[in-house]
Design a protein around this nucleic acid. Sequence first.
DNA 1: AGCCCGACTTCCACTCAGTGGAAGAACTTG
DNA 2: CAAGTTCTTCCACTGAGTGGAAGTCGGGCT
Lengths: 254, 254
Amino acid sequence: MSGRAADGRSVAEKLFAIGDAFQGREDLSLSEIASRSHLPLSTAHRLVGEWVAWGGLVRGDDGRYRVGMRVWRLGVRQPTAMRLRRIAMPYLEDLLEATTEHVHLAVRDGLGAIYLERLSGPGAVSAISDVGSRLPLHATGVGLVLLAHAPTEVFDELLASKPRKFMPNTLTEERELRRRLAEIRSFGLSTSVEELTAGAFSVAAPVRDATGEVVAAVSIIAHIERLKEPQFALGVRMAARGISSALGYRPQGE
Amino acid sequence: MSGRAADGRSVAEKLFAIGDAFQGREDLSLSEIASRSHLPLSTAHRLVGEWVAWGGLVRGDDGRYRVGMRVWRLGVRQPTAMRLRRIAMPYLEDLLEATTEHVHLAVRDGLGAIYLERLSGPGAVSAISDVGSRLPLHATGVGLVLLAHAPTEVFDELLASKPRKFMPNTLTEERELRRRLAEIRSFGLSTSVEELTAGAFSVAAPVRDATGEVVAAVSIIAHIERLKEPQFALGVRMAARGISSALGYRPQGE
DNA sequence: AGCCCGACTTCCACTCAGTGGAAGAACTTG
DNA sequence: CAAGTTCTTCCACTGAGTGGAAGTCGGGCT
């Protein structure tokens, strides 16, 4: 590269930083992209131009940039996300009907849970789990379920990362977490109260594939006043079982 | 840049060429990526490494590369594709049930039709319209509908591009095309026989948004033996109307 | 209508990040 | 075990990429 790269990032890293700038946002101005990707304005201008030339970003008449079809087309080649979403959708729709709050499908990605799908009823609590977003494993219902069924190295890695306590009820101590994950494995369900969001609780269950491995988790998030209503646990269990079954999972000894 | 870029492409262009290599493919070896993106092996190796570092590609235990979650997460920020798919899905499912062949939803992208969704019944004809794929406007049912309702510059641009005749029935002559597009606009439906695929016919209809603008097209593709069955035209019309209605379209004078 | 401000575009001297052929390592197949 | 293929690493070479500064454009306000 020539000139004087101030912060040592490669061209590729800068390009991907521009892509990352769109996390959680639907459209951005050039200055916003530069700021969020930590690039000088002229560098951002040039590299955003490369995204536009490829079709990965589109500049609207309002001068704002949005993700283009080229990225979407590449994204749908991601095998797991598309297949799981398609298979799970009918079950998630059923679960939505039964609960009328938020319904999620998520997969593990390192120490995060990526939300593959979110269906929301009218009057659902304020949610921060956009489709495509990635939230910490230890602070979400789906995350705890995914963590409970992950290789032990993942748990060790989480502890080493000094997990943040988002709410008073967010578990971060090793002993508490170990006990909680053991409960989840044994009970087959996770019920969490105010772990990431005030005024809400969640119920989550694991989704298994044909090998029995946990590949995703289903959950609902609802207003805390509804904690005692029985259809949440039942519905989440049944949705998770249905999706698992559709993925080829056959429970043993049942 | 340094060294000696043999073909004048920028680093960005090379990176995106790697992304493009995955069109129509779920997994590729390093050599395949190099070949498909027209890069020397060592260059491909370095740049693929950048994709992997970002999370846009993942290398499996088999040494083959697949699209990673990072791309999917960016792709779902594409506003049009996600919204149209979500709104259209129930209507497409209904249409699938009525026809048991292929059902498509597509949008125009320059001189191509991008397939946002494809639902397929058992026994459906062999199809080349994968979700995310982009096929020429003039050679597909959805494409002709999208072309019929596009600005006139698009038609001129198509003629200038010397469109390819994939099958004897593929229209490429200006007068034929003009007549055909006028028919489609007047009839509100397109029926095409063996325009891209032998042994198949398609029926397609426009999807309109709240402004009345055609923003997508719905179609079925079926075995040519079923050409006379009446439920195809009816079903496609109704699905397109339903999706349009859900998008806020209110027909005038009806 | 004019001025001011913010956002964006363009320029360009400078230089090291990126280049890709070649050699070697690793893996697969017969 | 040998041969062939694929992938990894090295490194001399150099021009693509750099980002601050200046200029342009558009919007808002008076």
